Simulated scan of single mutants.
Amino acid sequence: MLSINTILQPGDWIKGESWDGELIIGYIESLSPNTPEGLVKVTVVTSDNNETIGKTIPVLSKRVKRLPVSNVTNKVQIEFLIDLALSTGDKEWFKELSSELNVMKQLVNEME
């Protein structure tokens, strides 16, 4: 059986179910692989319970699934991700996405 560390890593985006059965989407803050349950601490970005949004909660690792990494292909997607980076306070991701957006704008300007 694979260790939790080979499947999930801090920073991975996940979807899953909380202890109370709420649907959550967020990212992993930390792992507790040495616990019998295999807990992960997830910062919730979206949930069907608005009170959970923005909080970091423990979730059983077997109740989460890592979301695939997506390739951003257009301006609207980058702008959405920039908003997400701002709402989660991820400065590095914000800088990376802003740089991508600027490159995209320069390419558009060169084409005109």
Rank of each mutant, 00 (worst) to 15 (best):
A85Q: 08
L8V: 09
P36A: 01
W19C: 07
S32R: 11
E110M: 13
I25R: 15
I82C: 02
L81V: 09
D48T: 05
G54H: 10
P68F: 03
V44A: 01
L60H: 06
P10G: 06
I14K: 13
S3R: 07
L97T: 08
T56G: 01
T6V: 04
S87N: 14
S70D: 15
R63E: 00
K75P: 07
N71A: 11
V76D: 10
V72N: 12
I4D: 03
G11V: 03
L84A: 11
T73S: 11
I28V: 01
K91Y: 02
W13S: 12
E100I: 02
L107W: 15
P33A: 02
E29T: 10
T35W: 06
E92T: 04
K91L: 00
S32N: 07
N71Q: 11
G38K: 11
G21H: 08
I82A: 03
V103Q: 10
I78W: 03
S30P: 02
W13V: 07
L107R: 15
E29G: 03
I7R: 15
F80W: 08
S98G: 13
T43A: 00
I24F: 06
F80Y: 10
V42W: 00
E29C: 06
W13Y: 14
I57T: 03
V40W: 03
T46H: 09
L86W: 06
L23S: 07
P58A: 01
P33E: 01
K62V: 04
W13Q: 13
E22D: 02
D20M: 06
M111W: 10
T6I: 01
K41W: 00
M1Q: 09
S70Q: 15
M1P: 09
S70M: 15
P10Y: 14
R66W: 02
V44L: 04
